[in-house]
């Protein structure tokens, strides 16, 4: 333990002489500045809806008022052709044609064309259901049971913090630890260590501790500046420890199959992008297919969200920490076994 600690202190001293540590701090500060001064607290998710009304004037103003109350940005078109042209210019928009069908209204939702049959059917049912609101006799009663009333929610801006913490803190070691190992290999440090009383395991742990040190500094700076006293710091630190060690161990394992950083880069890069697919499910929680749910970053992102609350979901945080710790240990054991055979070669 003492030897690992000495090596870790030496690694810190060396890293403070290099560029990387300061670059991490600069990126953290830039992130905080962008979050505070550029990113709004709440993202306006207003959808643009192009509307063509084939209605008499008195009815038009009533319908426009109703549509504007829905929260969407309403752009009125003078003809069906104009509506379609406007939609072609803005591929994220939708359209609506409102006309009279005898005594009733006829609504025609106009979509771009990439939506699935299921999405179209859902949309139709939603619009029909909305039009039924307040109509007596046609529908039953829907009661809502909320399992956790007043469950805390992050602002849209703060919801981005877990994504940053996952990319830049938890998975920091994925690339950098590999770079450290290859650098030591290249400079002959590993050969020197081979004749020292240090074991391979102690050498690897020292590198992981260095990553952890940087990750802790980075995460505490970002969370303290953005969340202040609202976060749960003991859980934050526990989660950063588990996730950062997992990222470093995974980086070590991947790097153990390669002889140079250039060779390892592609696999590390791909691993990073695959792991970050979970961030889409985090930002859009209704999209959670099994292959995203099995990514370790999936529970990690939600656990990082919970640590940003004073009283976050303890079960969720604990499960994520245990899961990451187990996976990290497994990856480390595999990497250790491989390095024991290959690192001095």
């Amino acid at each position: 333990m003492k030897k690992t600690w000495s090596l870790f202190l030496q690694d810190i001293r060396l890293s403070l002489q290099g560029l990387y540590f300061y670059m991490e701090i600069i990126i953290a500060v830039v992130f905080v500045a962008v979050m505070l001064f550029v990113v709004p607290d709440s993202f306006s998710r207003t959808e643009t809806r192009h509307v063509y009304l084939e209605l008499p004037a008195p009815l038009r103003s009533v319908v426009v008022g109703e549509l504007e109350a829905s929260g969407a940005t309403i752009v009125l078109a003078n003809s069906l052709a104009e509506l379609e042209q406007s939609m072609q210019k803005d591929r994220m928009s939708s359209g609506l044609v409102v006309s009279q069908d005898g005594a009733w209204l006829r609504l025609e939702v106009v979509l771009q064309g990439h939506e699935s049959e299921q999405t179209r059917a859902l949309l139709q049912a939603t619009v029909e259901g909305a039009m039924l609101e307040g109509v007596p006799g046609l529908t039953g009663r829907t009661v809502t049971t909320v399992l956790v009333p007043n469950a805390p929610r992050l602002s849209d801006r703060d919801s981005l913090i877990p994504v940053y913490l996952t990319i830049n803190v938890a998975l920091m070691g994925l690339f950098i630890i590999a770079a450290y190992i290859f650098l030591d290999k290249e400079e002959g440090v590993i050969r020197a260590l081979a004749v020292s009383p240090l074991s391979t395991g102690q050498y690897l742990v020292s590198k992981m501790l260095l990553m952890l040190f940087m990750g802790l500094v980075n995460s505490v700076v970002v969370v303290a500046l953005l969340r202040g006293g609202l976060a749960n710091y003991p859980w934050l630190i526990a989660l950063v420890v588990a996730s950062n060690l997992f990222g470093s161990a995974l980086g070590l394992l991947i790097a153990s199959y390669f002889n140079s950083m250039v060779q390892a880069m592609e696999v590390l890069y791909t691993a990073m992008i695959v792991l970050m697919f979970a961030s889409y499910s985090y930002l859009m929680p209704s999209f959670s297919p099994w292959w995203v749910r099995i990514l370790p970053t999936y529970s990690m992102l939600f656990a990082f969200r919970e640590v940003l609350f004073e009283n976050g979901n303890v079960n969720l945080m604990l499960i994520a920490i245990v899961q990451l710790a187990v996976l990290g240990m497994l990856a480390f054991a595999l990497a250790h076994a491989r390095y024991k055979r290959t690192i001095t070669v």
Binding site: R91, W104, L107, V109, Q112, A125, M131, L138
Partner: peptide
């Protein structure tokens, strides 16, 4: 809204709703 629509079942609705696209 979806549940409300399902509750109405086959009843005649006070509005007709259609969905189409612009083939993109």
């Amino acid at each position: 809204n979806v549940l409300r629509r399902l509750q109405a079942g086959e009843a005649v609705l006070p509005v007709s709703v259609g969905v189409r696209d612009i083939n993109y």
